[in-house]
């Protein structure tokens, strides 16, 4: 079974983003960029399935600017076999990305597509579900366990009340939650090897896909700031303040 994994280049999760003064977005110039953490988990899962003899080939895909090649190289260093960049300079939105992934899935015929549950920049949590819809496939979202069998895959999902397990017909789409696995660090020899792995670049038009954003961002603003609080000296003082000042107990 071939596995397709989608990886997005995003502002590193350790960066405290700043809203641009003109309100058009957040500052991304000279900011550290990394692979979306959920996508690292997606790559790791694919690599583990391959190591366990469940997968034969791992193809990683990113939709984004030329710099997303770095993200793809990271995935190759983690153990993916080959990479495809759908190069575009427009802001990617989930529906457009899902359409690009659909076109590639039709070409590559994977048995499983693994995505992150959420990109930590747009916090959309949509692309996997949209891709499954467009392909007419089953979806196993927010996965904390993925067990492929003959023609099916059992996915344990993190849901609001606890955990749920579903059986999906293959091919299927899976999106990763945080506890699916702990991604490995790429070793130096593997980083070197990754430089020689194939990385193909295509454009959206070549795939017959329209990536034009559907949602227009009118404004990006700072969230309301909390006024700084006070330190209390003792438990007694805390209880007194909660009662008489905050009046919440």
């Amino acid at each position: 079974m071939k596995i397709l994994v989608a990886v997005k280049r995003v502002v590193d999760y350790n960066v405290k983003v700043r809203v641009k003064a003109d309100g058009t977005g957040v500052e991304t110039a000279n900011v550290k960029m990394s692979m979306n953490p959920f996508d690292e988990i997606a790559v790791e899962e694919a690599v583990r399935l391959k190591e366990a003899g469940r997968a034969t080939e791992i193809v990683v895909v990113s939709v984004g600017p030329a710099q997303a090649q770095e993200t793809l190289r990271t995935a190759l260093a983690m153990g993916a076999d080959r990479a495809i960049l759908v190069q575009t300079d427009v802001e990617t939105q989930p529906l457009g990305v899902a359409k690009a992934l659909k076109a590639l899935a039709e070409k590559e015929q994977p048995g499983l597509v693994i995505l992150g549950k959420q990109a930590i920049d747009d916090d959309a949590n949509q692309t996997g579900q949209m891709l499954a819809a467009l392909l007419g496939w089953a979806q196993g979202t927010f996965a904390s366990k993925v067990v492929p069998a003959e023609g099916t895959v059992a996915v344990t999902r993190e849901i609001d009340g606890g955990l749920e397990t579903v059986d999906l017909k293959l091919p299927a789409v899976v999106t990763t939650d945080l506890r699916l696995n702990e991604p490995r660090y790429a070793s130096l020899p593997n980083i070197m090897k990754a430089k020689k792995k194939p990385l193909e670049t295509v454009d959206a038009a070549g795939l017959g896909v329209d990536l034009t954003p559907r949602l227009k961002t009118l404004k990006v603003a700072e969230p309301p700031k909390r006024a700084g609080g006070v330190k209390v000296g003792s438990v007694q003082e805390l209880v007194a303040k909660l009662k008489t000042e905050a009046r919440v107990i």
């Binding site: 989930p94 529906l95 949590n125």
Partner: peptide, 23 residues
């Protein structure tokens, strides 16, 4: 925006060929 809603709404939106606005 529960795990149910987040799972279903994007699938609905894609089938309608419209964007989904999250959260």
């Amino acid at each position: 925006s529960t795990t149910f809603g987040k799972n279903v709404a994007p699938r609905v939106a894609a089938l309608l060929d419209v964007a989904q606005i999250s959260d």
